[in-house]
Amino acid sequence: MPVTLFAPKLSYAFFLPRTSPLHKFHPLTKLVAALCIVLIGFLASWPHLPLLLFVFLILPLAAWGQLFRDVGRATLTVILPFVLSISLVQGFFYPGATHVIFSIGPFALKEEGLLFAYRTLGKISVLAGAGLLLMFSTHPADLMLALVQRGFPNALAYIVMTAIQLLPHMQAKATAIANAQRARGLETDANFWRRSRALLALVGPLVFSALIDVNERALALEARAFSAPCSKTSLKELHDSRGQVLARWAMLILLMVFIAWQIWEL
């Protein structure tokens, strides 16, 4: 089987290369920033904070990283399905709500429910926005390297990276198997039962070939000294600076102070 047959154009997870200053930051700086924004958004008792964080921090950062449209569009895609469902369900059925805005028959839209929906949506936008901004602006290999350098297990980082790289190949292989079987008369686009049977015929070869590959892959990794009992080095260099180190500590301290304040307020 010629190898080049299933080598599709790869996209490395969500990374979008740009020439922005945001892209040049050390991955850990971006990771800590995203973490702080998400935690502050989630733990804030003031209901408007999540949305304000999204509009006045995440979106400007995205614009700075030349990713405004990408982050905006992707976040909308994530939260739109929630907007309607959460607003309706919480608006009508929020337990213990009393302030009725209007009612249709036995159902009443209540203020407390809408407020809860608003806060939940704010939190989801912050989570999605910060997470997407991090993934769009940081190469997964750089993020993993930064984590491994801080003591993250190398084997786990390897699994994450291979999953990102090899999944598109598994997909391509699945398509190739499906095409091959269709060419020999297997019906893959008939009714539900027919299609389930076709799925079984697809999964078998895919899983078995993957298992056979695993053994060879394990030996090949051994031949590349993967389990050598020494501390590893890296060809790639991540640029860090004293300013970024300070910024990371400052963000973490800010987060601690914020959490302490929220607890004290309770």
């Binding site: 190898v3 490395y12 190469h139 290999a141 980082a157 390897y158 990276m161 291979t162 790289q165 090899l166 590959d213 060879e216 892959r217 090949a220 990794l221 031949a223 590349r224 000294a225 993967f226 050598a228 020494c230 501390s231 590893k232 080095t233 890296s234 060809l235 790639k236 260099e237």
Partner: peptide, 26 residues
């Protein structure tokens, strides 16, 4: 196909993979 590390994104990094594992200085 099966002996590429799967964890590296360029040919140069792929070739360096074994040396990284052996802890060779950059």
């Amino acid at each position: 196909f099966n002996q590429l590390s799967g964890a590296k994104l360029t040919v140069r990094e792929e070739i360096a993979f074994g040396l990284e594992n052996l802890g060779v200085p950059r």
